[in-house]
Design a protein around this nucleic acid. Structure first.
Lengths: 326, 326
DNA sequence: CTGTTAGCGCGTTCAT
DNA sequence: ATGAACGCGCTAACAG
């Protein structure tokens, strides 16, 4: 079987010029109904499918969306990616995925690769995003960031949740349950992590618990155990974790130590990802509306294509989902 | 700021023809060292980046790899996707992701969309793959399937693990630990699930435990609890789950019921995904070498591009990773 | 109003 | 080392 039929083949079969085929296939008005029928029939008979590359080359739009994600091993990320892909599909866009861009070098390489493919827009779901790299990428195509950068990056839209507020919800809930010595568990120094930490500290202060502020910091891949043990030894009765993954670590450690949750240690996570329902006891967690976040990111890009030039930074409101762990 | 510099701009700057620029940039021999230098310098100064679309249009290769995955909510899938993306990157290929193709209709639509983009190859990581759809897709580009179809599909390569053997490993381990009443927990009727189930039944028989064969079937999204309770009531002391997700369900149920694992119920999973380490107690699970599987899938596609026409079906050997749950 | 001609976009390729 | 044609769909300008 020879190669794909082109509009030339369709034109020949319908006995018209290729231009007219092009017009007819795209529903242009200037084609008589009868001819249109004939052309569509011919296309159908030949099993014609338009060549997206040729069109992209000519129109300077690929209908391609680049998605850069730090890693796929955090369910929160994959859920955002899913929602982006879903939204993209609704608008006839395809998603090009690049993962693992945690090092600036790799991130730059992946952004370049996506740029070379002429993606029409980029969604970055990585807290490792370097502002300079993002701006460089934004010179080629609009960029929407899902998540938080230290400060708004000029020229780049963002979709975010209010981390400070989310942290306050978590702390408020624990305080209402009678906890005073509430620790914060975090292994991140990236913007979202820092914001949650700041939110935690502010909330503690606003409840008059400044003296009980205790941040359990650890390096990436370092166990949470030692820090948690020390906190517990000092009478700490609750932990607000930076995200569900870290909350899961706390739960696991409690399990390993035979500590009852929430009686011996209350745990609150962040993200309300699939992990929260997997956890035992089920995890109380701050919900980020990730489905909307992905869709919103795509919407922001569409607005850019439509001509918007002012930056937009959407901040969604998180809510606390109370389950059994706190 | 005007649009991207093209090969013509580079040619003008270097004072040569665009043909020569093309040759020089791709390292062709017939370019004198001096001229090559000049051309590369010009390209560099202009910040030239070649247009992947134009090249793809001409060469009939896009360097695009379509990846179709049933869903991203199973860590096993995302790990395969990551390994495919990694392998693709090594070969200068980009990954186009389509997820959620569980319904034949959506699957068909996504495959078509990828085909229209002229992907050079497809990796299908979905057990929902319909053979007819795959064959239709394979008429446009080579297809490598990661996972199992009911029977080998003509014209389509596959990478797989030996599910029967994996199931035998799980059962053998439980038998060696003294279990006799070993149930199998499954919510899948797709090929891999069926193969593991068959493997379980054969293994039970080979250990003379036919009479204790007990398959706990449930619908997708149906709780595992009732079936597990019934099995436990009948003296069942161990469960071999179809995958880690289902094993996790069993663990959760045991937790909910206050049943000790493994003393009251031993649990073995399948996949050895990230979930296995998240579980408490840590999950004993049959390891699928997913990193190699993704890389191998890409390799199979490359062989197709190099001209191989005979189908290849790679079957990798799983191994049991023993942890605390059994 | 209906339909055609003649490029164009950008990198590759081949005959000269 | 070069000009011209090519891949395939789009589109401005033009003819009937």
């Amino acid at each position: 079987m020879r190669s794909r039929p082109t509009i030339v083949d369709v034109a020949a079969r319908a006995g018209v010029s290729k231009s007219l085929v092009s017009l007819a296939l795209r529903g242009d008005d200037g084609v008589s109904p009868a001819t249109r029928e004939r052309i569509l029939a011919a296309a159908d008979e030949l099993g014609y499918r338009s060549n997206a590359l040729a069109r992209a080359l000519r129109q300077h739009r690929t209908m391609l969306l680049g998605v850069v994600v730090g890693s796929l091993d955090n369910p929160y990320h994959t859920e955002v990616v899913e929602s982006v892909e879903r939204a993209a599909e609704r608008h006839g866009l395809s998603v090009l995925l690049a993962h693992g861009a945690r090092r600036a070098g790799r991130m730059a390489a992946r952004l370049d690769a996506l740029g070379d493919l002429d993606v029409d827009g980029l969604v970055v779901v990585s807290s490792w995003a370097d502002p300079e790299l993002l701006q460089a990428a934004a010179r080629r195509a609009p960029v929407a960031m899902v998540g938080r950068s230290l400060e708004p990056v000029a020229g780049i839209d963002s979709v975010n949740n209010d981390d400070e507020r989310g942290a306050a919800l978590a702390v408020g809930h624990l305080v209402a349950a009678g906890h005073e010595r509430i620790a914060h568990l975090t292994s991140s120094r990236r913007p979202a992590g820092l914001a949650r930490r700041a939110g935690y500290e502010h909330a503690m202060a606003s409840h008059g618990l400044d003296r009980h502020v205790r941040v359990i910091e650890r390096g990436r891949d370092e166990p949470a155990g030692p820090g948690l043990d020390a906190a517990l030894a000092d009478g700490c009765s609750a932990v607000f974790a930076r995200n569900d993954v870290e909350a899961f670590d706390a739960l696991d450690h409690a399990w390993d130590r035979g500590i009852d949750v929430p009686a011996g240690l209350a745990v609150v996570g962040y993200d309300d990802s699939a992990l929260a329902l997997r956890a035992r006891p089920r995890l109380t967690s701050v919900h980020q509306p990730r489905a909307e976040m992905g869709a919103l990111a795509v919407e922001l890009l569409r607005e850019r294509w439509a001509g918007r030039t002012a930056d937009r930074h959407e901040v969604l409101t998180p809510r606390l989902v109370v389950r059994a762990s706190a």
